[in-house]
Design a protein around this nucleic acid. Structure first.
Lengths: 214, 214
DNA sequence: GCAAAAGTGTTGTGTCTACACCCATGT
DNA sequence: ACATGGGTGTAGACACAACACTTTTGC
């Protein structure tokens, strides 16, 4: 579960109350019940931490099967990437907390690699899909969105070019509203929203496109 | 397992000798043994059909957990995409055969969707990685490679532009050899090879690139 | 010479980055 | 007026598609 908080990409971690790795931070999750879907299971286990309605996007990352990944028993795990929009601040149990992905504590099992793989997936998809909808609140200005993209990507993003790319692709659209400037003044910012609340690929076929017509 | 044969993308299918779906075509696979890696398991089960050394690329597609995917019992399956280079023609058991992906017979379980998802993954990766290495023989001319790309992508590909794209990216390189023309004449074709026999992303950051310097 | 196949030259287009400049507001 | 932040205009770089043209062979 990733979210941008305080301008940084953070991961939701749970301090293990069980062996193995008792007391070590780990990703939330749990065992799959018979007859259950993986996604149902994830949502169920997350419900103990976060209101499920707050999860804007959930996608499968990878299934891990290295026999050494659990020191005690042979175990298979399927990792998921979940995204929560900036701004929502769910009540968390005492043993659960957000941690910046850029400064993770020691994590149990292979959870560090999983977390970093999730960040990579997010970064890649920011480039060719509308996945930003799952990081952003319902309404936002371009500079707010710029800050979200910069936090997720790990480098500066130009508001100018971000706006043009996303508008041209039809990923975001103006609401018509404007936001009042802060104390220092400044031109009121136009308010935007994402066009779709579902993942869509917006930049298919970078190359080797099918021939135009003829 | 996909391969281009006779200029068409084909999938390796097994005619089931067991219930459920007895007699229906299905993807090769089998149960995971305790202590085994998913990839080990796949390779082991494939070994009954194809020499494993012929599999040039193997990657995880997705783990499926819909409780209705098996009519009899609750079952989880992890699908893999495997690629075999054109030209190798493994001995197959009598109950196993190649079928064009564009004209699949009725398939057991959700194997039709898995197969089509594999084709989509291949098509996407042809655009931004060097995955062609797993479809092509060790040496080839540009027009041979063009035919492979066209078969996999399902549309015409220009040899001119394919050559330039792959050379610019350093995906393929000339061997220095040339191939003698056929009976009808023609200029001898330069022989190329892929630079790397492992998957590499060659077209990262289509957009929202990090700032140049400063 | 002519057909066939491979390969190069070249032009045009679309998408992106970078940066200069203009706009609207608060103090 | 001027600082602050938002937004537009525009030029340049680059990668790609399309197609004309040239090269090298067999017959």
């Amino acid at each position: 579960m990733l979210q941008i908080r305080d301008g940084t990409l953070q991961a939701l971690l749970w301090k293990r109350a069980r062996e193995p790795f008792l007391g070590t931070w780990s990703l939330p999750g749990g065992y799959l019940e018979p007859g259950e879907t993986l996604e149902q299971s994830i949502r169920k286990h997350l419900a103990a931490k976060v209101d499920v309605r707050e999860v804007a996007h959930l996608e499968q990352l990878e299934t891990l099967s290295d026999p050494d990944r659990d020191p005690r028993e042979w175990q298979i795990a399927t990792a998921y990437l979940g995204l929560v929009p900036t701004g929502v601040d769910p009540e968390l149990p005492a043993d659960t907390a957000w941690h910046p992905v850029s400064a993770l504590p020691e994590l149990a099992f292979d959870h560090r690699e999983i977390t970093l793989a999730g960040r990579e997936r997010l970064r890649a998809k920011l480039s060719y899909t509308n996945i930003g909808f799952a990081l952003a609140p319902a309404q936002f200005t371009i500079s707010e969105l710029r800050d979200l993209y910069a936090a997720a990507l790990g480098h500066d993003v130009s508001a100018t070019n971000l706006q043009r790319v996303l508008l041209r692709r039809g990923v975001i659209e103006a609401t018509g509203e404007r936001r009042a400037p802060g104390r220092g003044g400044g031109r009121p910012a136009a308010v935007f929203r994402f066009h779709s609340p579902r993942l869509e690929v917006t930049d298919e076929f970078a190359v080797l496109r099918p021939p135009s017509n003829k």
